[in-house]
Design a binder for these strands. Structure first.
Lengths: 144, 144
DNA sequence: TTGATAATGAAATTCAATTTCATATTCAGG
DNA sequence: CCTGAATATGAAATTGAATTTCATTATCAA
């Protein structure tokens, strides 16, 4: 069974919240997992529709939020105003380099930045729940 | 003359781009500079309207973009979906701690994080143009 | 099997942000 | 100081993503 762990996490969440198991939700989860990262709801909608043509946009939108609730998916608000979603389960926390010209995303990891962020928060009596580092610039290709 | 430097920067930009000097633009600039940080366009609109009741929302919106263009103002996209603007000229780069409950902003500075960010970008052949670190969490007051 | 509850999909709505357009203002050249 | 070409303004319309509504359908526990 592909994505057995992710499915179990999702189903446990469904059970815990007394929600219902539906074919749409499973399709959306699987399509989300099968696909490259940083999807918009619109993009996921198009992909799911290929296999499940009757599905509605609102269902995608609602289900993606469910995926975020149970830790399978992470929301990323980018400067272009469209919210994107990426895989979360089994992925380390990472930050993003985003090219302002071509929109390319590069994921970067810096344990040291992580640690400094925690320190900053502690100094200011904050408890971090999630964080987003977006570094906007130009990638090699797009640089003049 | 209050804000002489900022006004000069703005006026130089206006001249350079062959735009026109208007009373509305001056009012918006001054009100923006007089006011606490992290304003939404809506908030700035309300403030400017107190002195200049006939001003339109679109003019505020357009002028704030002009302020960003000439480096007096910086755009900050926050998770709640409303874009906020803060003073830029004469302010060091800083990051933000944002309380997910009460919306409080705390500005934090970490030269070390800055440095690590530059390194990360260089390693990945990126040239940073601007960056945004948002640490979302709970402040002391809002923590259970 | 059934009935209470939740989910779905289409359409309507929301809300910030942007664009359109008729009118008003600015300002450079005469 | 005029004048007119160019830009700016404000109201209203539009856009576009995201959310909500609602009638209908599906799920699942008893």
């Amino acid at each position: 069974m592909p994505y057995a762990q992710e499915r179990e996490i999702f189903e446990a969440h469904i059970r815990k919240k007394n929600l219902k198991h539906t074919e749409q939700r499973t399709q959306i989860l699987v399509t989300f997992l099968e696909t490259e990262r940083h999807l918009t709801v619109e993009e996921l909608y198009v992909l799911v529709r290929k296999k499940y043509p009757s599905i509605g946009y609102a269902t995608i939108s609602r289900t993606v939020k469910l995926l975020c609730d149970c830790g399978l998916c992470s929301e990323l608000k980018v400067e272009d105003g469209v919210t994107r979603y990426e895989h979360l389960y089994g992925h380390d926390h990472h930050d993003h380099l985003i090219c302002v010209d071509c929109g390319r995303f590069v994921e970067v990891v810096s344990p040291e930045i992580e640690r400094l962020q925690e320190e900053l928060a502690a100094e200011n009596d904050f408890t971090i729940e999630r964080h987003r580092l977006g570094l906007y610039g130009k990638c090699k290709k797009c640089r003049p």
